Computed example of a mutant assay.
Amino acid sequence: MKLKDFMAMAAGATALMAVAAATPAAADENKLEELKEQGFARIAIANEPPFTAVGADGKVSGAAPDVAREIFKRLGVADVVASISEYGAMIPGLQAGRHDAITAGLFMKPERCAAVAYSQPILCDAEAFALKKGNPLGLKSYKDIADNPDAKIGAPGGGTEEKLALEAGVPRDRVIV
Rank of each mutant, 00 (worst) to 15 (best):
V116P: 00
M90E: 11
A53G: 08
H99Q: 10
D79K: 03
C113E: 15
K109R: 14
F129Y: 05
G97Q: 05
G97P: 04
P50T: 09
E127R: 14
G97E: 05
S119Y: 02
A96C: 03
P65E: 06
S119G: 12
E86Y: 11
E127H: 12
Y118C: 05
G76H: 02
P49T: 09
R98V: 08
K73Y: 12
A101W: 00
F129C: 11
A114H: 07
L106R: 01
E70M: 09
A114M: 09
A63F: 15
A82G: 15
I84D: 04
F72N: 01
R69I: 04
D79G: 03
K109C: 06
M90L: 05
A89N: 14
I102K: 07
V81G: 06
A130V: 13
G88R: 11
S83R: 12
P92I: 13
V81T: 15
L106G: 02
P92L: 11
L75P: 00
A63Q: 13
T52G: 11
A64Q: 10
A128T: 08
R74C: 12
M108V: 08
E127C: 03
Q95P: 00
K109L: 14
D79Y: 08
R98E: 12
A128H: 07
E86T: 07
L106H: 10
G93N: 13
V80P: 02
L123R: 11
C124F: 14
V81L: 10
E111T: 15
A101E: 01
T103E: 09
S61L: 05
E111Y: 15
S85V: 07
K73F: 08
G62N: 01
G55L: 09
F51Y: 11
E70S: 09
A89S: 12
P92R: 12
P92F: 12
V67A: 12
F72H: 01
Y87C: 08
M90D: 05
L123V: 13
I102F: 05
G58H: 03
F129R: 01
C113R: 14
I122G: 11
F107P: 05
A117K: 10
V54D: 00
E111N: 12
K133R: 09
A126C: 13
A96W: 02
S85I: 02
G62W: 08
A130G: 05
E111H: 13
M108W: 04
A96G: 05
P92Q: 10
S83N: 09
F129H: 04
A56L: 06
A115H: 04
A78K: 15
E127S: 08
E70T: 10
P110K: 06
